[in-house]
Write a protein that binds this DNA or RNA. Structure first.
Length: 422
DNA sequence: TCTGGGGTCCTAGGACCC
DNA sequence: TCTGGGGTCCTAGGACCC
């Protein structure tokens, strides 16, 4: 039995938590670079602000209704997420953190002690007591049904934020009401195709013919169908799986026109990606770089390109990755374009302890020792000190800095930003 | 003026092997 | 007229998730 715990309007709730003056005010949170709306408080939703709209399309609504706007503050959200997850880990024997604002709990056997609905209420009130953040709880025998239960808990006020979908008749009654595109795993494209063949509700999908689904769509949708029928196809991830790729990319706050500007930006991305790599105790066997102009400015000349290289020996050394990235970038650069975005992707990731060395290397084994020590010293300094050490390639005025005009303080992670009560 | 960033999985098709 | 049968590996592209 699964309980899916999902925070309500997570980013917006984190912002409101430290601004009690905004309790009843509509709040929205923007994507990186202050681009699109990625979270809305319930008041903002009630005003009809849609998920994903560019903020410059809704300037008049923002003024008219006094909507409070925040830039993304991932330092705050990440820390608040950790508080929520720690709370959940005390409430269930197994917790699978699925994303920054939701987790699946293993609650098998809980019903022998308390009613599942009551347990859900207990989870909800404990999280709000420990963190101040509101959550909804969906309970069912498969992940997909638990997701559906959570959807209902959020949508229908009468549920008081908890839905127990362990009984088949309740499952079927709910599924008959839920549009098929609200099912976990059914996105925009597939829902259009499904509706064309008369499958419009979750129940239609649950009752569809498995062989036909597999043939016309894929085994993925067939699994979703089975999950809706209470057959669990998505097992517990007992150990967190190692990453398969690491990406670091950003749109630039202002356009970049020069090769040296792009160099600086991608060197930064390379270093950040390498830090993530070392944090996960992995090495990368392949490096990819991409650049592009702004596709929304169709009146301007457009250009996008990418290049990649396989490394003979996997590495986690920032200097090697920066060097590779810059050699890839150079031949890709074309003069006369306004570059709007670039990124670095590391692939063919392997564990830092088990990987294939180069048979023909003239270096003795253990040659990484100096590199390892340098990287760990850099990581240590950058983790604990305000003074950052970095590659010379990253230096210079950060023309590609993000726009974050409405950034809130780092209330919980920086002593200088501690809230004060007067 | 202004449109995010980071992932995973599956499938089809091509190249290759015996 | 007529050209096998059984595999593996890799990549690009498409779909999905938050």
């Amino acid at each position: 039995m699964f309980a899916l715990v999902d925070c309500n309007n997570f980013y917006a709730s984190c912002e409101k938590l430290f601004r009690p003056d905004l309790r009843d005010t509509p709040v929205i949170v923007l994507s990186n670079n202050d681009g699109c709306v990625v979270a809305r408080s319930k008041e903002a939703k009630a005003l009809g602000i849609k998920m994903g709209v560019p903020v410059h399309h809704i300037q008049s609504e923002i003024r008219q209704h006094g909507i409070q706007v925040f830039s993304s503050n991932y330092t705050l959200y990440g820390d608040m997420s950790r508080h929520v997850m720690v709370t959940l880990e005390a409430l269930a024997p197994r917790v699978d953190v699925y994303s920054i604002d939701e987790a699946f709990l293993d609650i098998t056997g809980v019903n022998r002690v308390v009613a599942l609905g009551g347990f859900g209420q207990q989870v909800k009130s404990t999280v709000v007591r420990n963190t101040g953040l509101p959550v909804c709880v969906g309970i069912a025998s498969t992940r997909t049904l638990a997701k559906l239960a959570n959807y209902a808990a959020k949508k229908y006020r009468a549920t008081d934020g908890v839905v127990d979908l362990s009984k088949t008749d309740r499952q079927r009654r709910l599924m008959a009401l839920v549009p098929v595109d609200e099912v976990w795993g059914v996105g925009r494209k597939i829902s259009v195709k499904l509706q064309a063949v008369g499958i419009t509700t979750a129940l239609d999908l649950a009752d569809a013919d498995p062989a036909t689904l597999r043939k016309r769509f894929s085994v993925v949708l067939e699994r979703t169908m089975s999950e809706l029928n209470g057959v669990a196809c998505l097992p517990w991830e007992d150990v967190p799986q190692p990453k398969k790729q690491i990406m670091c990319s950003r749109s630039f706050g202002t356009v970049v026109k020069t090769l040296s500007g792009l160099f600086e930006a991608v060197a930064n991305f390379a270093v950040r990606a390498a830090e993530k790599l070392r944090a996960g105790e992995q090495c990368a066997g392949a490096v990819m770089v991409f650049v592009r102009t702004n596709p929304f400015r169709s009146e301007l000349p457009q250009y996008s390109n990418s290049a990649s290289v396989k490394l003979i020996t996997p590495t986690q050394d920032s200097r090697v990755i920066v060097h590779q990235v810059l050699s890839l970038l150079k031949p890709m650069f074309r003069d006369g374009y306004d570059y709007a975005k670039a990124g670095v992707m590391l692939g063919d990731l392997v564990s830092q302890v088990h990987y294939q060395e180069d048979l023909f290397s003239i270096e003795p084994s253990g040659k990484n020792e100096r590199s390892d020590r340098l990287m760990s010293v850099m990581d240590e300094i950058n983790r604990h000190s305000g003074v950052k050490v970095h590659s010379a390639r990253q230096a210079g005025p950060a023309a590609h800095k993000m726009r974050r005009k409405h950034l809130s303080p780092a209330y919980t992670t920086d002593w200088r930003h501690l809230p004060t009560v007067r």
